[in-house]
Write a protein that binds this DNA or RNA. Structure first.
Length: 226
DNA sequence: GCGACAG
DNA sequence: ATCTTGTCGC
């Protein structure tokens, strides 16, 4: 799977901020989904031994949630972790992994934010714009914004608000378990994004896409540690 | 000035 | 994120 748009990654902080501002105008905050038959999850972990990042993409059947394809890739770190500039650290290995996919997923769920971001351009939006594929941001914690605690039942949600703007939802995926932070990545509406996250989280707090890509990454870490 | 701050 | 320690539930 090849990206539709590309840009340099050897940027300093100021250049990265400007690029976010520019690319944020490309985000489509509406559904433009065709048939969703496959859903992908992406995750990245830092490998301290080799000072590298390991990225994994797992593509699941949207009905059975069983994996149909998975890829893994290792890449050097070339940008520090800075809240708000997360994608400049994690996207290079993710793009490498995406290029190895022989099938094009209909939807991608990211472990991080979409437009629930200071400049409305988190990792999920960045990935979505570069590949022009529908994406959802599903973070374990929030980056910006404030929200009331949603009800205790699976499916309950509250708006995440920043600067008088609804930028996402706190969504309870399991009864009494800490909610996740859902936001639009690209080419999807917030309501549809919530529906998919709920559908992908039938048993655990996090969607199967995130859990399975996370598992693949952890397996690589444990393996190369010996 | 101080805290907060996706992974 | 990762690592460590401690506590609780299965």
């Amino acid at each position: 799977m090849e990206p539709v748009n590309e840009h340099p990654w050897n940027l300093d902080v100021e250049e990265a901020l400007l690029l976010q501002q520019k690319l944020a105008t490309c985000v489509i905050q509406e559904d433009s989904l065709q048939k969703i038959e496959t859903v992908a999850g992406v995750d990245v972990a830092y490998h301290p031994v080799s000072d590298a990042l390991i990225a994994a993409v797992v593509v699941l059947d949207a009905v059975t949630l069983h994996p149909v394809q998975s890829v893994r890739v290792e890449d050097q770190v070339h940008f520090p972790y800075i809240p708000g500039l997360f994608s400049f650290r994690e996207l290079p290995p993710i793009i490498k992994a995406m290029k190895k996919l022989t099938l094009r997923p209909d939807l991608i769920v990211c472990d991080g934010q979409g437009i629930a971001h200071p400049r409305r351009f988190g990792l999920a939006s960045h990935l979505g714009v570069l590949f022009d594929v529908p994406t959802i941001g599903c973070g374990k914690t929030r980056l910006v914004g404030s929200a009331q605690e949603p009800g205790q039942k699976r499916g309950d949600f509250t708006p995440l608000v920043d600067d008088d703007e609804v930028i996402g939802s706190l969504l309870r995926t399991q009864d009494h378990i800490k909610p996740v932070c859902v936001s639009i990545g690209h080419r999807i509406s917030l309501a549809t994004a919530r529906d998919w996250i709920l559908k992908l989280s039938p048993r655990y707090r996090l969607p199967e896409t995130t859990r399975q890509s996370d598992q693949l990454v952890r397996r690589a870490l444990a393996q190369s540690r010996q």
